[in-house]
């Protein structure tokens, strides 16, 4: 029985990590096409990805949209989380559900809707629409992670701060913010990674010279089947792992998820 469950555990791990190993290894290939096992070893594909201008541009756009949408989602989401946690709102349950809706609605629908109504009808620039679309997608993460932290924080400390002379808003910044700072950072990391890896919404929202990194990678693969895609994927996965690892070490990310 123990043998069985142990073997199952290793199989699951292999299933989860196997593709990652394949991708990393394929990126180190010396050959011209994406194959596994790699044909010889070289660093040329890891070097080449830094020389492709489309990757550079879309990487910069992805970072900007990721950071911008994450900040917007937090600015909108933290007050929502606070209101849900502290006040008995009319339709509170409905609001809670609506805020989580972007988690359930397929990204394709969000992307198509934004393309049809924001880009075509309102003629909004694609970059702004991307920012809006990603903000929508990230709000549930901001609200959920911060809500969990607020639910664990006593509300009477705010009253205590007010009675000691702070205004209500002052009390929020003096005694609530420092206690949910970890959750906000965790929400930041989670949201940024989600935005960075997002495909369906980004797929619809691209224009001449404007595309997010995952979309750019898809297009690149349609024309060029070389190991540089593997090298780039490996680097991105490594970056995400590093971020999660660091936040876990510094704040204990898992407390908020």
């Amino acid at each position: 029985m123990q043998f069985l469950s142990r073997s199952l555990l290793w199989l699951v791990l292999l299933f989860l990590l196997g593709p990652f190993v394949v991708i990393v290894a394929a990126g180190f290939s010396a050959g011209d096409t994406l194959t596994f096992p790699p044909q010889g070893w070289s660093l040329r594909w890891y070097i080449k990805i830094f020389t492709i201008p489309e990757f550079q541009h879309s990487f910069v756009l992805s970072v900007w949209v990721g950071v911008g949408a994450t900040l917007l989602a937090l600015v909108l989401g933290v007050p929502v989380a606070y209101a849900i946690a502290r006040y008995r709102l009319p339709f509170g349950e409905t609001i809670r559900t609506l805020v989580s809706a972007p988690l359930i609605v397929p990204g394709i629908i969000i992307g198509l809707a934004l393309l049809r109504y924001v880009v075509f009808t309102l003629n909004a620039p694609v970059e702004i629409t991307l920012l809006l679309g990603h903000t929508t997608l990230l709000i549930p993460y901001a609200v959920r992670v911060v809500s969990a932290s607020l639910d664990n924080l006593r509300s009477d400390i705010e009253e205590a701060a007010v009675l000691l002379g702070r205004s209500r808003l002052g009390a929020f910044f003096a005694v609530v913010m420092p206690n949910i700072r970890g959750a906000i950072l965790a929400a930041f990391v989670l949201s940024f990674i989600t935005s960075f890896n997002q495909v369906p919404v980004s797929l619809f929202l691209s224009g001449p010279g404007v595309s997010m990194l995952p979309t750019q990678m898809l297009w690149y693969m349609e024309y060029t089947y070389d190991p540089s895609i593997a090298a780039l994927s490996a680097l991105l996965a490594l970056g995400a792992m590093l971020m999660v690892f660091l936040t876990e070490r510094l704040l204990g990310l898992s407390r908020y998820m």
Binding site: D156, I157, E159, A160, A161, L163, V175
Partner: peptide, 12 residues
Amino acid sequence: GLVFQSYALFPH
């Protein structure tokens, strides 16, 4: 001033 039943100290 108010002393709370739960003390309501600032945990941070």
